[in-house]
């Protein structure tokens, strides 16, 4: 569990644009929980777009990011969402779910 991986390849590029720079810059730990319950921890700045985290996670598990869904409190994480915009807290969990389809065949 909890492989602590500093997932920072992209976040270095992010410059704080928020006035509350100090707060926004504070990295927080976010855990990504797969549908089987496996957890992966990410450290991410509060103003970094979560889409980066999504890409990194998809890459890690070897799936197309278009086939998995990232949910925070049950809501799909949008393109522009950041930990700050979602008001995320330390160690909050993001649920990863696999795409669902259905037609009954």
């Amino acid at each position: 569990m909890a492989d602590e991986l500093e997932n920072a390849p992209t976040q270095e590029n992010e410059l704080p644009v928020e006035p509350k720079a100090e707060d926004a810059n504070t990295p927080i730990n976010i855990k990504v929980v797969s549908s089987t319950g496996e957890e992966v921890f990410f450290k991410i700045k509060r103003n970094t777009k979560l889409s980066k985290l999504q890409l990194a996670y998809a890459q890690k598990i070897g799936k197309d990011v278009g086939t998995i869904r990232f949910l925070y409190d049950g809501e799909r994480i949008q393109e522009d969402d950041t930990p700050q915009s979602l008001d995320m807290e330390e160690n909050d969990a993001i649920d990863v779910m696999v795409e669902q389809v259905g037609g009954r065949r």
Binding site: S34, S35, T36, E99, V101, G102, G103, R104, R105
Partner: peptide
């Protein structure tokens, strides 16, 4: 199975 996408709504 968690990795399957389902078949029905």
């Amino acid at each position: 199975n968690e990795d399957t996408r389902g078949t029905h709504w």
